[in-house]
Every structure is written in structure tokens, then in C-alpha cells.
Nucleic acid binder design. Sequence first.
DNA 1: ACCGTGACGGTAT
DNA 2: TATACCGCCACGG
Length: 110
Amino acid sequence: VTPADRIANLVARIPAGSVASYGQVADLAGLPGRARLVGKVLRETPPDRPLPWHRVLRADGRIAFPPNSESGRRQADRLAEEGVEVRGGRVDLARFGWNLDAVLWGPGAV
DNA sequence: ACCGTGACGGTAT
DNA sequence: TATACCGCCACGG
């Protein structure tokens, strides 16, 4: 199992309607400190592949692309499509961040 | 081996 | 809250 596989596997697990950061994905994939690797894997992932790459944001909730870029707008649209509120190219991780429930209520309540 | 690059992160201002 | 910097890691030239 290559690092890229574990990363893709994890991204695929992010539920619709919530988001995760590159670093979070790296950590959960057992690759601490490889946030940039996550970006690379997603970058090299074909657009047609059924991977929810749009649910991955920076640690501060900002979309990794320039707000006016084509990719940036596309990502924002797809997120909005799932009910994720995007304002100023940014998402409130406190509300849409993955695992928030687990953090607040404990893994057993999820 | 050296250096620059990047879908990143954390801290200091 | 928004920038500016600097650290990190994997790659490629």
C-alpha cells in the first residue's frame, strides 16, 4: 500500500457536507507532516475519478486555490452543492470540519 | 549533492 | 482578522 493509496482512501471517506484539511488527511492516513504530499496526490488525480477532492481545504478553512481561479470557483460550487457554506473562499471548520462531532461528543456518539 | 517549487502548517506582527 | 515568515517533505532539474 503506497502513501498515495492511503491518502486517496481517506479522502474517499470524508462524508458529503463536511470538510477536512490537508494536514488532517495526512495525519489520519498515518503520514504526519506530509500535508503537501496530500496536495500532490490530489493534483495528480484525474478529474473524472470519483474522489471528493473538493472536501479538502487548508488548515484555516481556506480553499487552496486563488478565489478567482477556475479550480477555486469549481471547488466552492461543489461544496455549496453539498450544503457547505463558503464565504470569501473560506469555510468555517468549526461548523463543517470533519470529526467535529467526535471531538465534542466522543467517538462513541458518532 | 545543490537548489527551487508547491492543492501545506504554525507563529509572530 | 490579515500578512509575513519560516519550517517541512517529496520531487525534479
